[in-house]
Design a protein around this nucleic acid. Structure first.
Length: 556
RNA sequence: GGCCCCGUAGCUCAGUGGAUAGAGCAGCAGCCUUCGAAGCUGUUGGUCGGGAGUCCGAGUCUCCCCGGGGUCGCCA
């Protein structure tokens, strides 16, 4: 494959033509308008189109049609560009059909490289996702960040970046202590002590399981400790249990982290004090009521500041998170850190942006916020909350509908949209999950290839120049959309578009299959050419499913 | 109350300011002696929540209103 996207080649040709038109006709004001090239919905409007002439009408002070015509006359036709047309102020471009057919060979040859680019070559990026409080098992609510973060990581890798998938373990602070205390209380209860679970503790069964595990291994060995001593003793053990679970369940989803980064270690590294000192030096920190505050008035109108260190001397979450981000970007030298967060951190995001701005790191800090996942519990929509004990375990969902359907479900809608999860419905409808529609197309192609091989026909030596029908070339057009999509997503992070694309490509193939016989003993040359075509479609499907993190089966 | 997200077909949702708003599911009518029917074809279904505005052009941008969700702590 060429290193330059066809879309960008066309944009370049248009820009070149526009520049010469402006020079020859004495136009001014054309430089400010970027040339956006899109794929028109209506095939009558060509393969690619730009509306730049419409946008330039005002600055150039010419009718759009005249501008479009002037561009059309000057676009150099050749290579992938077969023809140019000016219509209603648009400039429409048609791709050369021979060139298009030749791309089948390029796609097949690229195979696992198809869709990859060097756009982000040399960039190191850290994507942090899921990272739920290590105080309990993963629920469907925390889980949404998994497929989003993993797929985004894959896309950025496709675009050439060196990506590190990170799970941030928040193993310090109040919730951590509360978790330890909850285990300690259960441990005491198991030894017959009459002690109640306080309302702010974690009440759920798994806490009992952890306590029972400790009792089974070590008996009453810790009963002589005070509750506070037990809390300190059991909290790390609880976190260990939680992380083991998190590792196991994310692996069930096909997610594998490069780093599990401990907040406790961050605190021991001294980075917190270092960051605090830097903020102090910048004059953005002040003391009040025995606490240390970050200046906030520049970022938010009616707020004076936010606490970095509490009056009891304990670092607050905001302070720790600022230090964490500084550590990633400076110490570990990532060019960019992208966090996948639930929308309940919206206010935290405002705080973090303010802090990153002060530290000069704002342009290296990005966040994808996803809206909350609710679940249907006994017919009522509820928020999941581990502290209330009401949640739906991610593991249960994966076991019920499978990894592929689970991932596909979470990637179908944009992060901005709220999701409601009904387990019963999900199980009932799991066979209708669109993921099977896409996988079926992949398996169907595999089956065609098997059938062909049985009849002694392979794609080897197939001449793609024989691919001239519209139905054939439309498949190539669509397959070539993948590299463009990867380039889009690396910029706007909208990974859900991968599922839409997968569905579109699969649908196009299913339609093609109905109208075109691939394996035909009476016409071996054409069969070979079409085998190469379906192979190219299979490559595009497999690459797309790979980015989504869903398997591409040869049989179903 | 301030800030953020959402409101598009019966349901679930796509839709970088472009040309005639789409898909899956559900409904209806069809299609397997031939490469996989987990499929295909046709068809029903829309005041893009409502109203103003910006623009050559608005589902998309701005403002107001309505409805749903989130958030605003020396918790994380």
């Amino acid at each position: 494959m060429s290193d330059v996207l066809l879309r960008d080649q066309i944009a370049g040709a248009l820009k070149d033509a526009l520049g010469r038109a402006a020079g020859e006709l004495g136009w001014s004001g054309v430089d400010g308008e970027p040339i956006k090239v899109e794929r028109p919905e209506n095939p009558d409007h060509g393969d690619y189109a730009t509306s730049v002439a419409l946008r330039l009408a005002r600055p150039v002070r010419k009718p759009p049609r005249d501008i479009a015509e002037a561009i059309r006359e000057r676009v150099k036709v050749g290579g992938p560009i077969a023809s140019v047309e000016a219509l209603n102020g648009f400039v429409n471009i048609r791709v050369d059909l021979k060139w298009l057919a030749s791309q089948v060979d390029e796609i097949v040859r690229a195979d696992k490289q198809f869709g990859r680019s060097k756009a982000l070559a040399g960039k190191r990026m850290q994507i942090e996702f899921v990272s739920a409080n290590p105080t309990g098992p993963l629920t469907v609510a925390n889980a949404r960040g998994g497929p989003l973060g993993d797929a985004l990581s894959s896309v950025l890798e496709f675009a050439g970046a060196a990506v590190e998938r990170e799970y941030y373990v928040e193993d310090t602070g109040t919730q951590f202590d509360t978790f330890g205390r909850s285990i300690a209380i259960r441990y005491r209860q198991l030894h017959g002590e009459n002690i109640e679970i306080p309302p702010d503790a974690y009440p759920a069964e798994y806490v009992k399981d952890i306590a029972a595990g400790i009792k089974a291994r070590e008996g009453d060995k810790w009963m002589k400790l005070s509750l506070e001593e037990q809390t300190k003793r059991f909290a790390p053990e609880g976190v260990e249990w939680v992380l083991r679970e998190a590792k196991r369940v994310t692996a069930m989803l096909g997610i594998h982290y490069d780093t599990w980064f401990s907040q406790a270690e961050l605190m021991r590294s001294g980075y917190f004090e270092k960051t605090l000192a830097e903020l102090r030096k910048l004059g953005k920190v002040y003391e009040k009521d025995g606490a240390v505050w970050l200046e906030a008035s520049e970022a938010v109108d009616d707020k004076e500041g936010w606490v970095l260190v509490r009056s009891n001397g304990e670092p607050g979450y905001l302070g720790k998170d600022i230090a964490y981000h500084v550590q990633s970007l400076r110490e570990r030298a990532f060019d960019k850190k992208i966090d996948i967060w639930g929308s309940n951190t919206h206010y935290h995001l405002i705080q973090m942006r303010a802090a990153m701005k002060v530290l000069g790191l704002l342009d290296r800090f990005e966040v994808v916020l996803y809206q909350y996942v609710r679940f249907l519990h006994e017919g009522v929509l509820k928020r999941m909350a581990r502290r209330s004990g009401e949640f739906l375990l991610l593991e249960d969902v994966i076991e019920a509908v499978g990894k592929d359907a689970t991932r596909y479900f979470f990637l179908q809608s944009s992060a901005d949209r709220q999701l409601d999860f009904d387990l019963e419905l999900a199980i009932q409808q799991s066979n209708e999950n669109p993921v099977y529609y896409v996988q079926y197309a992949h398996a169907r192609i595999a089956s065609i290839l098997r059938t062909a091989a049985e009849r002694g026909i392979t794609s080897d030596g197939g001449d793609v120049a024989l691919l001239t029908e519209k139905g054939e070339l439309d498949l190539v057009r669509l397959a070539l959309r993948l590299p463009e999509l990867v380039d889009d997503i690396r910029q706007h992070y909208g990974v859900h578009q991968l599922t839409t694309y997968a569905l579109e490509l699969a649908g196009a193939f299913h339609g093609f299959y109905r109208d075109h016989r691939v394996v035909d003993d009476a016409d071996v040359p054409r069969s070979k050419a079409r085998l190469r075509l379906v192979l190219a479609v299979q490559v595009a499907l497999r690459q797309t499913l790979g980015l989504i993190g869903v398997s591409a089966p040869d049989k179903m």
